[in-house]
Simulated assay, not measured.
Amino acid sequence: MKIAVYGASGYQGKLVLAELARRDIEMVLAGRSAARLEQAASAVGIPGAERRVAGTDDHEALVHALRGCDAVVNCAGPFTSSGEAVVRAAIAAGCHYTDTSGEQLQVKGIFDTFATLAREAGVTVMPAATDGCVPGDLIAHLLAERLGPVEEIVSTHVIVGGGGMSRGSLRSLVETFDAVKAGGLAYDDGVWRLGEPARRTEIRLPGQPEPIPVMAFPVAEVVTIPRHVRVRHVEGLTEAALGDQLNSPITLELIDGLPEGPDADSRRAQRFTYVLDAVAAGGRRARGVVHGPDTYGTTAVIAVESARRLVADPAGPGVLAPAQAYDPAAFLDALAPHGIRWSVEDVPVRT
Rank of each mutant, 00 (worst) to 15 (best):
G45T: 11
E38L: 07
S82M: 13
R88G: 14
C95P: 05
E26K: 03
T100K: 07
S81G: 05
T80Y: 15
T80R: 15
L66C: 05
G83D: 04
A40C: 11
I91T: 02
E50Y: 04
K108W: 03
D99N: 06
H59M: 00
A49P: 01
C75K: 11
Q104E: 05
K108M: 07
V73L: 08
A40Y: 10
E38C: 04
D57F: 09
E103K: 15
Q104T: 00
I25T: 04
C75L: 13
L105A: 12
R23F: 02
T80N: 03
A89E: 00
E60W: 01
T56C: 10
E60Y: 01
D99T: 09
E84F: 12
A21Q: 09
V86D: 15
A30C: 15
T100D: 08
R88Q: 09
A21F: 01
V53R: 09
I91L: 08
Q104H: 10
P78H: 15
C69W: 10
V86A: 09
A90Y: 07
T98A: 04
Q39A: 15
A54G: 10
F79S: 08
C69E: 05
A65P: 02
D57N: 09
S101C: 14
E60F: 09
T100I: 05
V63A: 04
L62S: 04
E60A: 15
E38F: 07
I91M: 08
G31C: 06
K108G: 11
R88M: 11
A49K: 07
L29I: 02
M27A: 10
A40V: 07
G68S: 01
D99F: 14
A93V: 03
A65D: 08
V73M: 14
T56E: 10
D99S: 07
V86H: 11
T56N: 12
Y97H: 15
E19C: 05
A21R: 11
A49D: 02
A76P: 11
Q106P: 00
A43K: 12
S82H: 15
G31M: 00
A71Q: 05
A54V: 13
V107M: 11
E19H: 06
R67H: 03
N74E: 05
G68W: 03
V107A: 12
E38D: 12
S42Q: 14
Q104A: 11
C95N: 00
A71P: 04
S42F: 11
N74W: 14
Q104D: 01
D24G: 06
I91R: 11
L29P: 01
F79K: 06
V44L: 07
T80V: 13
Q39D: 14
G31I: 00
A49L: 15
A92C: 05
V87H: 14
L105W: 01
G31R: 06
K108E: 03
V73R: 13
E38R: 08
T100C: 14
S101A: 15
V86M: 04
A85E: 05
A89L: 12
I25G: 07
R23L: 03
P78N: 13
T56R: 12
S33A: 06
V87L: 15
E84A: 13
G102F: 12
A35P: 04
V72E: 01
R32W: 06
A30R: 06
E84L: 10
S101N: 10
R32A: 02
